[in-house]
Amino acid sequence: MDKQKKKTKKIAKPLDESRAKRYTCIVCPTCCELETDGIEVNGARCPRGERFALQEMVMPLRFVTTSVRAQIPEGTMMIPVKTAYPVPMARVFEIMKEIKALRLSEIPPIGAKVTAGSAESPTEWIVTGEVE
């Protein structure tokens, strides 16, 4: 709970107050409190946080993790997968619908690619686990 947070050494950059937004960085468990006006970012302890804040302002992106069904002669197995890239937050439910509709006919190895969705806008997933 009371994780000691080192004070950022960096001096806060002046922000355009009319556009400034606050975010908590979720890239790592440090959870820095960020503030950005879309150009400058304050509060980030590392560059990943700066990128996060700028991206979050334009279009939040998230990785989605779930498990997909594989129907093999022995029965149904759940295969853990993650999206190959972060996807727009606004599309998460649509993407979930697509992967839920998918049925694999064999158990892919960890690291294998799985494609779901329509041919025009497919989403690539990566298998993240072994299934015995």
Partner: peptide, 9 residues
């Protein structure tokens, strides 16, 4: 950043 299953593997 890995999933728990990837970490185990």
């Amino acid at each position: 950043e890995l999933t728990g299953t990837e970490y185990a593997f």
